[in-house]
Design a binder for these strands. Structure first.
Length: 263
DNA sequence: ATGGTAGGTCTCCTA
């Protein structure tokens, strides 16, 4: 038996209900992990999501900003969230399946425009947040653990349209890419997408501000799916669905999809 | 070097 999972920064769940329905229909997604839902628990469109076919909805919400959700066909055994650095922001939710697979869904802070933690407290916060992620997974014994979501960092040269032109742009600076690579290495995760696709350009985000995102193709791979060693080989396939960037009205991110063998 | 778009509202802030 296998399940299909997806991670997607949808930039407002209420604005994107039809796209969630389309994704479920066309890609048979059993568990959908969402970031930037941008509403409180009270404003979550539970009824509409159930009509789409997601029977179980787990949500960590906040007014206007952030908000991370797990929409599922299958009931989860438990769920919880971390509030790293105690700011009360809804940037993490974890769901545990009956098979004891831990899915950690993250929306890492974007970090503002100025890539200097002394001048820009948003960038300082982003770097601290990444350190908290590392600390958390270092102190856990990683059993059947998957971490996914919008990490807001494009770690590799092949994760951006121009390494040279983005080396001083927040999301691809050395301090961020080093920090993200360090989490991967020190905690012992596998970058599932890169295990399947090496040495080719891969993007999951294209700015809204481009005149023609498709033609200019100035993308970045900001969204990730990592797995602990004991479960990494259970991923039968994965993909980043570029064409979803054209679905109307579009999010600036596209979904990452993977098929996971439950044995 | 600059500004471009989108979403939710806090008619400005965040991305």
């Amino acid at each position: 038996m296998s399940i299909r999972i997806a991670s997607w920064n949808i930039n407002s769940i209420r604005r994107r209900l039809k796209l969630i329905h389309k994704l479920k229909k066309e890609f048979s997604i059993d568990i959908l992990f969402l970031q930037e839902c941008k509403c409180t628990e009270n404003d979550m469109p539970y009824e509409e999501l159930k009509k789409i076919g997601y029977k179980y909805i787990y949500y960590n919400g906040q007014k206007s900003y952030n908000g991370v959700a797990i929409l599922s066909n299958l009931e989860l055994k438990k769920f919880f969230s971390y509030d790293f650095l105690g700011k009360g922001e809804a940037r993490h939710i974890c769901g545990v399946t009956k098979e004891n697979i831990n899915f950690h869904n993250f929306y890492v802070p974007a970090g503002g425009d100025e890539p200097d933690p002394v001048k820009n407290i948003k960038f300082e916060y982003k770097l601290k947040y990444l350190e908290e992620m590392k600390k958390k997974f270092l102190e856990e014994d990683l059993k059947k653990t998957i971490i996914l979501g919008d990490f807001n960092v494009a770690p590799l040269e092949e994760d951006v349209w121009s390494h040279k032109q983005l080396e001083n742009v927040v999301s691809h600076t050395k301090v961020e890419t080093d920090s993200l690579k360090s989490i991967l290495k020190v905690c012992g995760f596998k970058d599932v997408i890169r295990e399947h696709f090496q040495d080719i350009k891969l993007y999951s985000w294209w700015s809204y501000r481009a005149r023609d995102w498709d033609k200019s193709n100035r993308g970045r791979r900001l969204d990730h799916l990592w797995a602990s060693n004991d479960i990494a080989a259970a991923f039968l396939s994965c993909s980043i669905e570029r064409e979803v960037r054209s679905w109307q009205p579009p999010s600036d991110h596209v979904p990452i999809i993977a098929t996971l063998n439950l044995l």
